[in-house]
């Protein structure tokens, strides 16, 4: 060995399997890159329908992420900091969209917010029409993305514990002040990574959108739906757009990792 190095203590066969696993994830991406028609790449991804789809995806995913934060932070706090009967069941239900096939989520949303859905009467009364609107896309994305934020934040809240909050209270800070000045800053890395996961999930959302929101250029046809549609006639465009989606996802996850590591708590946090 040329340089000094710590002994890893990882069995060789583990490294081998890990390599296979990594290839399994990376190869399909590589295969896609290989298939891109680079000569036509720019025209393919700058067609009006592609740009509309990309902008719509970014817009709806951002709003969905904000909704996830607004709804998810209180949910995570209640799940992590309080105890009440039925809490475990409630947690399971809240996390259900994680494991639910998105198309099932779409059907469920349809029967809730649809024209003939559960909330038909109040929505008619208020004159709200959600089906086939951008709002429907955002609802579908929020529905599937919310558990990611709740899950990662709840875990972080439990890890951080309540000791700092208790100290804050004895220093005269009310619950809201404690939340704003202690709890949220302490779990900020988890909040950021949870929000990024939610954003990524919202960006990739397909099944629920297709079922619940429909597909209309500039209104409900997000990038994944555009890719799905382009595949019918123009596989080159579909591959090119897929690559754009992958690139956006990589940029977002990379940014989040930076934020996460910068704001990671120091080693003496719990001492």
């Amino acid at each position: 060995m040329k340089t000094s190095q710590n002994y890893w203590g990882v069995p060789k066969w583990v490294l081998a399997i890990a390599l296979v696993g990594a290839l399994f994830v990376v190869l399909p991406l590589l295969a896609m890159v290989v298939r891109v028609n680079w000569g036509q790449f720019i025209p393919l991804i700058t067609s009006q329908s592609s740009i509309d789809a990309l902008l719509l995806s970014l817009r709806t995913s951002t709003i969905a992420t904000l909704l996830c934060i607004i709804l998810g932070v209180p949910m995570a706090l209640v799940l992590a900091r309080t105890t009440f009967p039925g809490q475990r069941i409630l947690r399971s239900l809240v996390l259900l969209p994680l494991v639910l096939p998105p198309v099932v989520g779409g059907i469920a949303l349809l029967y809730t917010f649809g024209r003939q859905g559960l909330l038909k009467a109040p929505m008619n009364f208020l004159g709200i029409q959600i089906a086939f609107s951008t709002t429907a896309v955002i609802l579908a994305q929020t529905f599937v993305a919310l558990p990611f934020l709740v899950l990662s934040l709840e875990g972080a809240l439990r890890t951080v514990g309540t000791r700092y909050e208790a100290i804050g209270a004895t220093l005269g800070a009310g619950p809201t002040t404690v939340l704003r000045r202690i709890t949220l800053p302490l779990v900020l890395p988890a909040l950021v990574s949870g929000a990024v996961l939610s954003f990524a999930r919202a960006l990739g959302e397909f099944g629920a959108t297709l079922t619940f929101a429909g597909s209309l250029q500039g209104v409900t046809r997000t990038l994944p739906l555009e890719i799905y549609l382009q595949r019918e006639t123009d596989p080159d465009a579909a591959v090119a757009l897929s690559l754009v989606l992958v690139a956006v996802a990589i940029i977002v996850v990379g940014l989040a990792n930076r934020v996460g590591s910068n704001s990671r708590l120091g080693p003496n946090v719990l001492s």
């Binding site: 024209r115 089906a131 597909s215």
Partner: peptide
């Protein structure tokens, strides 16, 4: 003036049979 342009017949039928369209 379609409210949605679906990528399959199934999706069109789904919107109609559920009463959304």
């Amino acid at each position: 003036p379609a409210v949605s342009q679906e990528s399959s017949v199934t999706d069109v039928l789904g919107k109609v049979s559920s009463g959304e369209a």
